[in-house]
Design a protein around this nucleic acid. Sequence first.
DNA 1: TTGTAAGCGTTATCAG
DNA 2: CTGATAACGCTTACAA
Lengths: 342, 342
Amino acid sequence: MRVRNLDVAREAGVSPTTVSLVLNDRTQVALAPETKRRVQEVAARMGYRPNLLARSLLSGRTQTLGVIIPSLSSSYVARIVEGMQEEAGDSNQQLLLTDTRHDPETEAAQMELLLRHSVDGVLIVTGESTLRSLPERLRVLREAGVPCVVIDDQSHAEQVDCVVSQDRIGAEMAVTHLIELGHRRIAHLSGGSGTSTARDRLSGYRRALKRASIPFQSEWVAGRSFSVAAAAQALEALVSLPKPPTAYFAANDRLWAEAIQALRPRSARLLRNAAVVGYANYDFSAYLGISSVDQSPQSLGKAALRRLLDRIETPSMPPQCLELPVNLVVRNSSKPVGSSAP
Amino acid sequence: MRVRNLDVAREAGVSPTTVSLVLNDRTQVALAPETKRRVQEVAARMGYRPNLLARSLLSGRTQTLGVIIPSLSSSYVARIVEGMQEEAGDSNQQLLLTDTRHDPETEAAQMELLLRHSVDGVLIVTGESTLRSLPERLRVLREAGVPCVVIDDQSHAEQVDCVVSQDRIGAEMAVTHLIELGHRRIAHLSGGSGTSTARDRLSGYRRALKRASIPFQSEWVAGRSFSVAAAAQALEALVSLPKPPTAYFAANDRLWAEAIQALRPRSARLLRNAAVVGYANYDFSAYLGISSVDQSPQSLGKAALRRLLDRIETPSMPPQCLELPVNLVVRNSSKPVGSSAP
DNA sequence: TTGTAAGCGTTATCAG
DNA sequence: CTGATAACGCTTACAA
């Protein structure tokens, strides 16, 4: 059915060995130019496609990497994967993509399958819901001897490579920007304390306030997780204060946008025109005119994949945590104090 | 290193055959319950993970499907992939995801790799830029005997399974909706004539007008491709007419949103408040309050994958084109005539 | 009821 | 410079 090495060999009147040598450009051994030419010609004519399964069985390498993500719904995650794709294409690696649907059990099952497929390595993008089970996943990978890089969480930086963005610095930039616009009453819509990224952003917020000698008030930190309902409620409360915030720093653009959707019309109108800087710079952030801290997720993905390939090449390197720079994208929502509704 | 069948067999004091029989639940042959129990226990204890490569080499099946997409940047595409994931998970299939970066050559190369990896089938989400080379891709797949399902294009419905959404009907719904709001001067921001979906949407637009006895005017159809620059220019022209449109039907929400970004401020302000119905219902469509035709891309992905599995099971079925229903999501931008700027 | 042996397509080794 | 042979890990006839 499918053309095999042996078929090409017979047709070209040589042995399978020779075919293999020619097609894999083994320059270590000298091949008669005429033989080489003939084999190549025959292989092309017959449409020979080497069976990578067989090769992998022998070599122990599949040129295949597993990617575990919470879900593709987030365009942030999608861009990370896009970055991986790009880098993978350049190294002839294929990506086996699996999403966990935010479910640790699904994640475990999917990883098991990836290992049975003998992936050469695994890239894990952590999500809030699968964070707790991450140590278990890492343990399994270590036992299987399969290298791994974690994206967006550095709580296991001692054991495993990770790639994150400079969240604390990004948050500090955002809040400092608002301060420079004259704001003093700046609230923070937080992503909670479950993820290290959310914690870092809160920490950056506090640092920026401190540097400007603005006292930190815990009541002005809203939101305990990336959940929309909680965020909306918290915003509602802030807006209704006698002296409401004049500006907001949101730990996540999507959280901000969706929370606004869930508000009462009056509050929603207020916040749509509020001074705000968000985080993650989704594509819609531009459409909404929201200033945002951009992490260039593609770069995260690319860096993670490159790191994984290095790790596969040199398993003995000490684990390393890469922190990629972020940059602030200024848009309409960067309003000076006093220019917008409260 | 990695535990093999043979290791388990030795440890359990049986032959590899027995291990295989037990772990694959071959009920055709009777196994001593005691043997069965012991083998299972030993396999679990040793952490045995069957090597799917070896199994595939023998069986000719890899439980692996190739997915070719233009790019993950589009959340529409991302959702299609998400749907596939969901369905794949339920059938123990893994997805090898590759993006073409809108480049036919990359697509060709990626598909070649997928075939070398012996995927059991391929799912192709067409993009404007890779549409021209689709016949060539299909030819290669046919020659390789690898089943395939095309999503979002039905120009090859006779040769190959395809899954699309009811674009003409969706467009008709959208425009009829605007007509019911009292509009008569309705423009269409088109995706051009390159893709069958864009053509269908234009055709639905015309049909809705016709049913309402509103004469069709080709000057009111703007945009010749999904390119932003072209769209912006066309919109600018329409807005500047002495009697501009009172409503717009956009072939794509993203195209609309990005075109508006590129307009001069005055025109942008006008269009941000215009009566408009878009298409594809991106997540940001909700944030912007744009009414939109929703194709439930997840369903597309799920249906496509299911179809592919059926096709793999029964290669002889005649090719079929599935048209999935769409539904109109009404939001703020559904303004009655006269209520909005021009 | 279980074991032996062959073979899937490839490449590494070594002999010629 | 090229060919024979074995081996990767698994499943499956067939034999015991």
